[in-house]
Design a protein around this nucleic acid. Structure first.
Lengths: 196, 196, 196, 196
DNA sequence: ATCTAAACGAGACGGTACGTCGAGTCTTACC
DNA sequence: GGTAAGACTCGACGTACCGTCTCGTTTAGAT
């Protein structure tokens, strides 16, 4: 029952400095331009310390996301009893956040990183959509029970559609503004045929 | 109106070989791992010939897209009179294409490239969604006139939602399968509340 | 017996401009740093025009020397009847010329070029030492006949010694000044043992 | 007085391999044709390791000379009491060495390098003539005291004359053979007027 | 006076090497 | 044994020139 090794523990100072430097750099120069040497220099840390604990640039980014240092997860708003209103509030807020170019740039960095690192992709989507998806699933079921909606659509599909729209807009840089939130939520609930 | 100068014209052979090599490499190794030296070697071309005509890796990719060498634009199917069926067919097809890992990998490469090159993003989205958006807008208007639908939703929003879903699925690698196409199109037309 | 070709003759204008540009550039930037593209640009001439008539950078330089554009051959002074005085005047003059840094730099360029182009070396030494050697041989023989000297030393050896000293001084950049001319000529005639 | 930092020391293995590769290549292909990439490849060393420690191709060559890897300094022979004989032995040996084309080629490389790098020139001449000049100066003075010679000629001038002849012969590739050694040394001591 | 073929200016081509950056690994001294 | 520092090998970057190859234009004979 003795401790496994009488040795120096990992430096929390170094770990924190690395994550902070990564968070700053990805926003400043973008994912592609961010180098591990740059992170090490900014964090006053040896490169080996990074390679000892992470296997790639995107893995550090993944840990930043898990720590909530970047893209803090936007929770679904508290249940007001009206799923439609709740989603609308949430979606408007999400689109509003993208008005800040720094946030948009950061999300592009994450998308770029996720595109060629499946592990980061998994972490990212678990982190970003996991909580929402869980409560979304619960609420959809509840709303179905209440007769509020009548659909076999899975929570995954709804999430996919909403997040997909966000990501698409970020990538296309079309800057369409948050006004489309209303139209999309309307369509989501009423369909193109409109409410009766 | 004078011609700039009488000199050796640009080699079409080189241009074509570069685009072909790029198309192959981005699918084989991904956008990040693809190097300009690799393209030059594969195309039997001097590096300078690439740098003379393109300013970046992503610019070559953009030209590949414009030439239709990669991701040939999937047109909306001919108008059968039923917009819903047409969209369903189109969306199923698009999702089906992503079943091929090569296509998925290629799309991830394009997304990654678009994330840090606004110019490529513009070309890509113009090329990929432009034709669809035009006919989509026409059909939406037509369907509205026919009473088939009743929505103020713009064609851009519809496109955004459908393409966003595709991109999101590609990035998340969740491999959900094409079955969700039906659910999404149902929701798009009927809403979560279902058809009456 | 017909002329070989009824065609446009070589452009003297281009030839002259190329030689002039070469002369200027080798003095300005040195032999190694001088590029054929640079010569072509400076002479407002196509590269092909250079390659059509010369096979290398050093070949152009060789022609410059032959044209007397650089390092105009310093002739032995007229025969005053006293070989020793004549040589002293000549050698002092030669060392004096090297006081001009431009001349020194140019000679270093020629040496560098000659070091890896045997053809240029041949032209250069033929041109630079040929005339001197011929008259030197005659004078040595004459002086020997007059009893002025008494040596089996060939004119080649004398030339070699005098020019060698010049080249060596240029390369070593020791900047010893022209005063050593007297000592060397004294030694050449009287030997280390001194005149009796 | 603090040490700069405790870090990985320079690799002696790499340094040695680089110098050896340079020594081989300069003899094989000549100074101009020798590339830094070629040295790096031959030495199994990254280019950066070369650029980290040397600022140019000629600087590496200079270090080779300093290490005695190329052109090991030919010492004056032990003092037999007869300066003239000693110089003759030395000069014959030096000219004999140039009979080996590899040595001649190597010396041409060094001359070419020295022509456009003053630093290398300084190292080269310090290294090649320094030891000889010192002992030469001593012997000249001694011989003068003994009445063997009677000349104000400095050791520098003698060195210049002898080395100059060697360099000149190398550059002109006239391949005159070592027989001229006797004539030159005769002249050096007796003068053109011959011994009395 | 027209014809014609090589020389010309320009510059794109396939390459080689440059000197720099960063990747991921290693070797120090220090803690 | 973890850490800061930084040297190591390696590969790619974007640039400069190499020597070759088209282009359209120019120009001096030969007809």
């Amino acid at each position: 029952m003795s401790e496994p090794s009488p040795t120096r523990p990992r430096s929390e100072r170094a770990r924190t400095a690395i994550l902070a430097a990564t968070r700053d750099l990805v926003a400043e120069v973008g994912y592609e331009q961010m180098s591990i040497e740059g992170i090490a220099a900014r964090a006053h840390v040896g490169k080996q310390t990074i390679y000892r604990w992470w296997k790639s640039k995107s893995a550090i980014l993944a840990e930043c996301v898990l720590e909530g240092l970047i893209l803090p997860s936007r929770e679904l708003p508290p249940d007001t009893g009206d799923l439609r209103d709740d989603l609308l509030v949430w979606f408007r807020g999400a689109l509003h956040e993208l008005g800040d170019p720094a946030n948009a740039s950061l999300l592009r960095g994450l998308v770029s990183a996720a595109a060629d690192d499946p592990d980061l992709a998994a972490v990212l989507y678990e982190r970003l959509t996991g909580p929402q998806e869980a409560s979304m699933a619960a609420r959809l079921r509840e709303a179905e029970a209440d007769g509020e909606i009548d659909s076999a659509l899975t929570s995954t599909a709804v999430i996919e559609m909403l997040f997909g729209t966000i990501v698409y807009r970020i990538l296309s840089r079309l800057d369409v503004g948050p006004d489309l939130a209303d139209g999309l939520i309307d369509t989501l609930f009423d369909g193109l045929r409109g409410a009766k």
